[in-house]
Amino acid sequence: MLHIKFPVVSRTHNLENKIDAFHDKMIEAAAVFHRSIKVFLNENSRDEYKSINKKIKTIEHEEDKLRRDIENDLYSQNLLPNLQADILQLIEGLDKINNQIDDVIYKFYIEQPQIPAAFHHKLIELCDQVADCVENMAIASRSFFKDLSIVRDYIHKVYIMEQESDSSYNDLKKAIFKSDMSLANKLQLDLLITEVADIADIAEDCADELLIFTLKRDI
């Protein structure tokens, strides 16, 4: 069968693939983060955590490359001229989430905080909620490009997960400062869980922007 390739069609297809790959990487980052805290809390998995830290760096690096390619393709090929600014803002926002995940995993790796067993359950719960929030944000963003009608559903899920993570964060914070750890340990742990909760906050900001872009895109 004869296949004729039109440059415009293949350019569009190429960019669609890159946008898909970018979102895949984001979901992968959320999954790695989800696993990372369990591995960290397991005393016998130091080497595995080291490889997780390496893996998240690789994902972040690949995501950055995809982000630059997407931005470059959008402007150099003048695709979606009326939405370029919105898409740029959205992709940059998603990149901030990934950077924050990378930062948090690296901080745990470098600082090696002492976390009493009493906090493990709450910390895992917080990280689950944050990872869920990021995953839903990635799906919402992907839907913006593929099926506008379901964007709101996923944005709503982002809001719910962010609220739950806020509540877990507050409980954990109270528990940390009520405990008999040294003040230095309390402050260190507080800073780290704040950084974890920040991931969900950044995702929420992205969801806010995406909601506006979705309304603007209404034909």
Partner: peptide
């Protein structure tokens, strides 16, 4: 048509 066909953003642009 566009709402039913669920055409992706880039295809819509094309």
């Amino acid at each position: 048509i566009i709402t039913r066909a669920k055409i992706s953003l880039l295809k819509q642009d094309f």
